[in-house]
């Protein structure tokens, strides 16, 4: 499968985003948050954000009392710029920009330890996933490399119906320009035949391709509607 064709597929399904750098540069993490209406410089609140997150995720955001248990058990906490509990707090305070700016959203491993141990029965992992969906809908994915990996993976599925590990890797390396990703593993993986050199083919690949095509069409329609 020629790479150009793959990239073409992917760009058709997920058009490239505008530069995220502009969004980052505009704010600093410690700007005053203006909770009331104010013309002074600072970060303004987005009035219905908290409600929107609560209703989309179906989670009782308002019950979070900031015990920090979610962050305490979070395996990605060390890599977060905004801890999970801080994201919950920012949502409570309608701080959409602050949330969307957080790299943490994209570093969440989805392990749901936070949800399991939340004393207020909030499915925190579900809130994080909802925020990812909402941020992507507004084209605000702040860790492009993670998104690129997902898209590379999905592109393989779209093309082959099943995941194709080497294909995902190649595509990801091209998209992210990280051409040395995991080369240290290559010898072992090849010797142990950990990776299938060719994609496994099956009849369902066309059906899966059609799922993606319809998904893409619906997304385009939704975007136009907005």
């Amino acid at each position: 499968m020629p790479c150009r064709q793959l990239i073409h597929h992917m760009e058709a399904a997920f058009p490239p985003r505008p530069s995220q750098r502009a969004i980052h540069a505009e704010y600093s993490m410690n700007e005053t948050i203006r909770l009331s209406k104010s013309s002074s410089p600072g970060v303004a609140a987005s009035p219905s954000f908290s409600q929107e997150v609560a209703s989309t995720s179906k989670q009782p955001i308002h019950t979070c009392y900031q015990c920090g248990n979610c962050s305490a058990g979070c395996p990605a906490a060390f890599a977060y710029d905004l801890q999970v509990n801080q994201i919950m707090r920012a949502v409570q305070l309608n701080q959409k920009d602050l949330v969307y700016r957080a790299k943490s959203l994209w570093l969440c491993l989805g392990c749901a330890t936070c949800s399991l141990r939340c004393p207020n029965n909030i499915d925190v992992a579900c809130v994080m996933e909802t925020l990812r969906h909402m941020a992507r809908a507004e084209k605000k994915a702040t860790v492009p490399v993670v998104e690129k990996f997902w898209l590379s993976f999905l592109n393989m599925i779209r093309t082959f119906g099943r995941s194709y590990e080497i294909g995902t890797m190649v595509l990801f390396m091209l998209r992210s320009l990280r051409l040395t990703t995991d080369v240290d593993l290559a010898p072992q993986a090849l010797v142990k035949r950990k990776l299938g050199l060719l994609p496994h083919t099956h009849q369902g690949r066309e059906a899966v391709g059609r799922i993606f095509t319809r998904f893409h069409e619906l997304q385009c329609k939704a975007r136009e509607g907005r």
Binding site: Q66, C67, G68, N69, S71, A72, G73, C74, A77, F78, L82, Q83, N85, Q86
Partner: peptide, 11 residues
């Protein structure tokens, strides 16, 4: 494994 919510860092 805990969290210092004042510092915003896991401890």
């Amino acid at each position: 494994m805990g969290m210092d919510t004042l510092l915003g860092k896991p401890v």
